[in-house]
Simulated assay, not measured.
Amino acid sequence: MDYKEIYKNELSGAYLFYGIEKLLIDNACDYIVKKYINNGMEIFNLTNFEGKDLDAKDIMSACETLPVMNEKRVIFVKDVAAFSENVSDEFYDFLDNLADYVIIIFLDTNDNLNKVKKFYKYFSKRKRNVEFTQLKGRDIYKFVEGYIARKNKKIYNVDLSYLISKSSYGSRNVDISLYDLKNEIDKIIALTKTDTITREIIDSSLTENTDTNIFMFLDAMCERDTEKALIEFRNLHSLNEPIQKILFMLTRQVRLLIIYKTLSFARYRESDIMSEMGVKKYEYSKIQRFSRNFKLEFLYDFYKMILEFDEKIKTSSGEDLILFEMLIVKFTS
Rank of each mutant, 00 (worst) to 15 (best):
D2M: 08
K4M: 12
K4G: 04
I6V: 09
E10W: 04
L11F: 00
S12I: 03
S12Q: 09
G13M: 02
Y15F: 01
G19Q: 06
E21H: 04
K22P: 06
L24S: 05
D26W: 00
Y31C: 06
K34N: 13
N38V: 05
M41I: 01
I43G: 09
I43L: 07
L54G: 09
A56M: 08
A56F: 15
K57L: 13
K57V: 15
C63P: 06
T65Q: 10
L66H: 10
E71T: 03
K72N: 12
K72M: 07
K78A: 07
F83C: 11
F83H: 04
F83T: 11
F83D: 05
S84Y: 05
S88E: 11
E90F: 00
L95F: 05
D96C: 12
N97M: 06
L98K: 11
A99F: 14
Y101M: 02
Y101G: 02
V102K: 01
V102W: 04
V102Y: 06
I103E: 06
I103D: 09
I104L: 03
T109Q: 07
N110W: 02
D111H: 02
D111W: 00
L113K: 02
N114V: 06
N114Q: 13
K117I: 03
K118Y: 08
S124Y: 00
S124E: 15
K125C: 04
R126H: 08
E131G: 04
F132R: 07
T133H: 06
T133S: 15
T133K: 14
Q134F: 02
L135Y: 13
L135G: 05
R138W: 01
R138P: 02
I140Q: 07
Y141W: 04
A149E: 12
K151S: 05
N152I: 01
K153Q: 09
L160N: 06
L160K: 05
Y162G: 04
L163I: 07
L163M: 11
I164Y: 07
I164F: 11
S165D: 15
K166R: 13
S167F: 03
G170Y: 14
L181A: 09
N183K: 13
I185R: 04
I185P: 12
D186W: 02
L191D: 10
T192V: 03
T192R: 08
K193T: 15
D203G: 09
S204A: 09
E208V: 14
N209V: 10
N209M: 12
N209Y: 00
T210K: 12
T210V: 14
D211A: 12
N213W: 06
F215T: 01
M216W: 02
M216C: 02
F217L: 11
A220P: 10
T226H: 07
T226I: 09
K228P: 00
L230G: 05
I231N: 04
L236Y: 03
L236P: 05
L236R: 06
N240C: 05
I246T: 15
T251N: 14
R255A: 12
L257A: 10
K261T: 14
T262L: 12
L263N: 05
M274K: 15
M274D: 02
M274T: 03
M277T: 06
Y282S: 11
S285V: 08
I287V: 14
Q288P: 09
R289V: 05
K295C: 07
L296Y: 14
E297W: 00
Y300S: 10
L307K: 10
E311W: 08
K314W: 03
T315R: 13
G318Y: 01
L323E: 01
L327K: 08
V329T: 10
V329K: 13
F331V: 06
T332D: 02
